[in-house]
Design a protein around this nucleic acid. Structure first.
Lengths: 209, 209, 209, 209
DNA sequence: CATGAATGAGAGTTCATTCAT
DNA sequence: TATGAATGAACTCTCATTCAT
């Protein structure tokens, strides 16, 4: 499977840091296996033994690296959340602003969603399994979008307006475009989607002459 | 709790229809209890015994009316889905069109979300507990939005464009505005939110001046 | 289904005798339904609600006629047991004796088994559900066979021998021929089976020159 | 209780093979406990918790070794079935044939039945709990008897005849003699029973002078 | 560090029986 | 006498977690 952006080095990761190279390898196998297991079956249907079976380790070894099923799930949620943020950030052209920049962020996000199909199932189930992380993920994302908007308004590339509402609206737009066109089906080209979204954000639904 | 739009009469309801008035009362109590239980605890944490405890019936009575925990959850998801659709439809002014109509739909939805805090937890967990209903809910909602857009374009109240993408984008916008301003906090007035969203849809982010 | 030899009149039947014609009809429907249900599903898999569903009565009505699931099963076992005895007795030619008479009894039994496929499943499960009736059935059957043997020896149509052992041996023979050729498959004609059994009883396995 | 012929090594045994000596010991305790529990209470009255209580393990440990209550029951039925076949085979004198050989087989079977009182309750309830194994048991046994008969006829120690019917008849004889004189009561000596049965098979009921 | 057996609380579900109407 | 809703004990099975080796 596609490996999520390196969780073994992230500060959000497990409390039990392995000391040997062998240990680090096992940890990585467990994390990859967990992403697959949680992505396929959801948090509650997923089982620790399913994770260790995929990872090829003994059941007991799991607890050498994680305190609980919740702990590895949390680690994964936070990594996914970071992964999304990084993917969006990485796709921005230095110096871009306004609607153009939003398009770039969306493009990066769509590409990330296509690579990480388990993204939605992991984030979404966090609503139940790790509500704090769930809320943190969306509030953090909205805050970053909002910061871009504030910046764009200051730069004159965006009309002043209710940036808080705008940020949540645009985040919702991105999330659902990612679900429909990134995860559920690939019947449309990413650039098409991004172009349509950009047009919507630029001109609204009845502008654009 | 606020009672969901009458599930006892809906065709999507259980296969075991009560024949007496007493039976109908028990069924209703179970459905209300289930909405509360699932809303508070989520599908997996919810228990049948929790539902019957809230409903004040014996555990076994649950199975007089539903085949399984899954069955009552499905019934609830479908009712919620219908409830959302009805609330949005009911809030439309006859003859309204274009961006104005979308604002009305959003207003209706936000009001519904504020009344039915369990809405998100039930629909969202359907992703795992009843994927068919989950997908059906969003595809159905998107289709209704898209139909409004097609109509508006025909009526000249909306610029032609990629209505499929637009519909998913607007649905996502609505969903996240509902989550943030309908469920998580009431720090903003519904009409404020609706006005900001309407402005976004009317003029985009850099138009309007 | 083929109705077992009239249980509504037997002294072995239920403790709650109906007083009206309507009641007697309901009782009969319940008994027929029970024979079918127990025969198809076995005692433990059978359910009272399955019986009343087949009988077309309300669940509660069952307890108007029988004290318990065990009670109706016992009634059925005793009836079946009587039915077998009667069928064997009825097939005897007056005045017949010795091996010839055993053949007649077997023929009657095989015919009965073919008509009452539920026979084995009901008697056999009595081993667990009503051990007293089970043991009574086989001890009674063996006693009747043994009485015939004693009579035949006295009449000079059978060599003296260990009639107790002989009776159990011949009963076992009959039971398994009934299972194999009466219930499991009809690939052989009843008279063929009876002739082969008679030959075995007459000459043994190495006599007969 | 008497331990059944080693099921831990049989190929018919569970899918979850223990890897450690401790595991093998637990598996054996569970199998012995299951034979006792099923023998005393029958399949349906038996409970998994009853088995683990007898075995002195935790309830959950049962599922380390067997997938279900059905699975351990099937394993037991198949072992019992093998045990019977082996006991009969082991009691044969090399080179014996005809009626004499049948006597030896019966003797072995009676001894086995006396040692394994649970035999009948386990095989018999298989009619309901594992019909395939039940039918397989009797068809297999009949086939072995029939093969002996065919061989004896070829060897000239048995008169030609309907060996299929004969085999089922003799099996039934053995089964019921085992029930009456092996399990229900020990009021008669095994050799007495065997002698009477041999006489029956040798001379029939009216021959022999 | 790795292993895999052991644990037991807890869940969903069934169904014989009772009871109010 | 008939009805069908109500009851709750009992059961099978799951699985996160612990622990001895």
């Amino acid at each position: 499977m596609a490996t999520a952006p390196d969780p073994t080095e992230s500060p959000a990761s497990p409390g039990k840091t392995p000391r040997t190279a062998r240990g680090r390898a096992t940890l990585r196998r467990l994390l990859d296996a967990a992403a697959a297991e949680f992505g396929e079956r959801g948090f509650h249907e997923a089982s620790v033994s399913g994770i260790t079976r995929r990872a090829g380790t003994a059941l007991g070894s799991f607890y050498t690296y994680f305190d609980s099923k919740d702990a590895i799930f949390s680690a994964l949620v936070r990594d996914m959340s970071q992964g999304v943020a990084k993917a969006a950030a990485a796709s921005l052209t230095p110096g871009s602003s306004g609607v153009r920049r939003e398009r770039e962020a969306l493009t990066g996000f769509l590409a990330f969603a296509r690579q990480h199909k388990e993204l939605y199932r992991i984030i979404d189930e966090a609503e139940f399994a790790d509500p704090v992380a769930y809320r943190g993920h969306y509030e953090g994302t909205a805050a970053r979008i909002r910061a871009r908007f504030d910046d764009s308004v200051a730069a004159g590339t965006m009309t002043p307006g209710d940036n808080e509402v705008r940020a949540w609206a645009v985040m919702g737009m991105n999330v659902f475009l990612g679900l429909r066109f990134g995860v559920w089906a690939h019947d449309r080209d990413i650039e098409d989607i991004a172009a349509a979204a950009e047009a919507l954000l630029r001109d609204g639904l009845q502008g654009g002459d």
